[in-house]
Computed example of a mutant assay.
Amino acid sequence: MIIYEIPGRENIEIENIVFDYNGTIAVDGKILEGVGELFLELEKYANLYILTADTYGTVVEQCKNIPVKILTFPKENAGKSKKDIVEKIGKEKTLAVGNGFNDIPMFKEATLSIAIIEGEGASGKLLWQADIVARNIIEAINIILDKNKLKATLRN
Results as ranks from 00 to 15, higher is better:
residue 79 G to S: 09
residue 8 G to M: 09
residue 141 I to Q: 04
residue 30 K to D: 00
residue 145 L to K: 11
residue 59 V to L: 07
residue 19 F to Q: 05
residue 136 N to L: 07
residue 29 G to I: 11
residue 131 D to C: 01
residue 9 R to D: 02
residue 133 V to K: 12
residue 145 L to N: 08
residue 20 D to N: 10
residue 99 N to S: 10
residue 144 I to Y: 10
residue 53 A to N: 11
residue 74 P to E: 12
residue 39 F to S: 04
residue 3 I to Q: 15
residue 53 A to Q: 10
residue 86 V to W: 09
residue 87 E to T: 12
residue 93 K to Y: 08
residue 116 I to M: 05
residue 76 E to V: 15
residue 86 V to A: 04
residue 144 I to F: 08
residue 21 Y to C: 04
residue 103 D to P: 09
residue 103 D to W: 12
residue 38 L to F: 10
residue 147 K to D: 11
residue 102 N to A: 06
residue 66 I to V: 15
residue 125 K to M: 12
residue 120 E to R: 12
residue 98 G to F: 06
residue 80 K to D: 05
residue 93 K to M: 00
residue 16 N to Q: 05
residue 72 T to M: 14
residue 155 R to M: 13
residue 146 D to Q: 04
residue 84 D to A: 14
residue 77 N to C: 13
residue 86 V to G: 02
residue 125 K to I: 04
residue 84 D to Q: 14
residue 147 K to P: 09
residue 62 Q to D: 12
residue 76 E to N: 13
residue 134 A to H: 01
residue 58 T to H: 09
residue 146 D to T: 08
residue 142 N to L: 10
residue 129 Q to E: 15
residue 142 N to H: 11
residue 31 I to G: 01
residue 147 K to I: 12
residue 37 E to V: 12
residue 84 D to S: 12
residue 31 I to D: 01
residue 33 E to I: 07
residue 153 T to E: 13
residue 103 D to N: 07
residue 118 E to W: 07
residue 138 I to V: 15
residue 14 I to A: 02
residue 98 G to I: 07
residue 38 L to S: 04
residue 11 N to M: 08
residue 14 I to M: 04
residue 63 C to L: 15
residue 74 P to N: 10
residue 9 R to P: 00
residue 43 E to F: 11
residue 26 A to L: 08
residue 143 I to D: 01
residue 122 A to G: 02
residue 32 L to I: 14
residue 105 P to M: 00
residue 51 L to Q: 06
residue 13 E to S: 07
residue 147 K to G: 03
residue 82 K to N: 06
residue 96 A to G: 01
residue 27 V to T: 13
